[in-house]
Design a protein around this nucleic acid. Structure first.
Length: 286
DNA sequence: AATATATCCAACCGCACAGAT
DNA sequence: CATCTGTGCGGTTGGATATAT
């Protein structure tokens, strides 16, 4: 598309913010809010681009920012969420009040990554680092330490927690027990499949994964899911948003014969479900 | 004490996306 | 429908600081 960056204007200041600039930005946002970041710098008397102002506000000046070291609880939450969400820092930050995506990303890159690696866990896959490629010497060296035990313990703990989180995610949809076909898929689905591939409920692939594990067709899994959650309000939402005439049409759109053709509708419905139930909003899931 | 090296983190950059025109 | 604009996100950089030699 080649649009020009809003920060390319000559003469705009870059680099570290001075206390005076912070004061100007704070004062302006306090009085006027930040309806338009592009227009803000000129109005606030700052020689900065809107993007820079936004970043400074979000990562440093916002009043609800929690500063200081991460607690062990926060660190554990970061690891668990990273196992589920991958490098989606803003999504992770949503579950850590007062922490910014930038802060979490930095903390991950400078602390957690090293810690996991040291414990023999691959920080990308959250699985024990494969020793098959190492020499026998390195293996013996490792075996002589307690790293293997640490790695196994951490891996087992993560897998158990991921497993619980996964079930909680489903349980959050309904107070009643989920259909057997769903749970059997979840039970047999390997944890690595779930945690290492950033699988989220918003993707059709998720249902396919579960279906594969329960020896059912994806459409059966979804139909089962649809009969379990209160699906009528979701279909109504879908009908309104897509200007579909009747709920029946919306239903057909979701549970049609040809799954591939309905991928978008499907994803949309699942999005509606996940956004309305916000499975991760409650800390007791962990 | 001086220098080299490692670590940390605030800020920047480029891209993607949604909404407006 | 194509293009423009604003915003948000994740990856990366570079300066400040801490630690080692």
């Amino acid at each position: 598309m080649g649009r020009s960056s809003s920060c390319e204007n000559a003469g705009l200041k870059k680099g570290p913010w001075t206390p005076e600039e912070d004061q100007k930005l704070l004062a302006y946002i306090k009085d006027h809010g930040h309806e338009s970041w592009r227009a803000l710098p000129a109005k606030a008397g700052l020689q900065r681009c809107g993007k820079s102002c936004r970043l400074r506000w979000i990562n440093y000046l916002r009043p609800d920012i929690k500063r200081g070291k991460f607690s062990s609880d926060e660190e554990r939450t970061i690891i668990q969420l990273h196992a589920l969400l991958g490098n989606r820092w803003s999504a992770i930050a949503n579950h850590l009040p007062g922490r910014t995506d930038n802060e979490i990303k930095n903390y991950w890159n400078t602390h957690v990554k090293k810690k996991l690696t040291k414990a023999g866990i691959d920080p990308v896959t959250h699985k024990p680092i494969n020793l098959a490629f190492g020499t026998s010497e390195t293996h013996q060296l490792r075996s002589s330490t307690n790293l293997d035990h640490m790695a196994q313990w951490e891996s087992a703990r993560l897998q158990a927690e991921t497993h619980l989180a996964r079930k909680s995610k489903f349980s959050a949809f309904s107070a009643s027990a989920p259909p057997q076909v769903l749970m059997s898929g979840l039970d047999t689905m390997s944890d690595s499949m779930y945690s290492s591939n950033n699988i989220g409920l918003g993707e059709v692939g998720d249902w396919t994964e579960i279906a594969l594990e329960s020896f059912s067709k994806p459409i059966e899994i979804f139909t089962s899911f649809a009969s379990w959650v209160p699906v009528v309000p979701i279909l109504n939402d879908l009908r309104e948003e897509r200007s579909i005439g009747s709920t029946t049409e919306a239903e057909n759109c979701v549970v049609g014969e040809h799954m591939d053709e309905n991928t978008n509708c499907w994803g949309h419905v699942v999005d509606l479900v996940t956004s309305s139930t916000a499975p991760f909003s409650s800390p007791q899931l962990y």
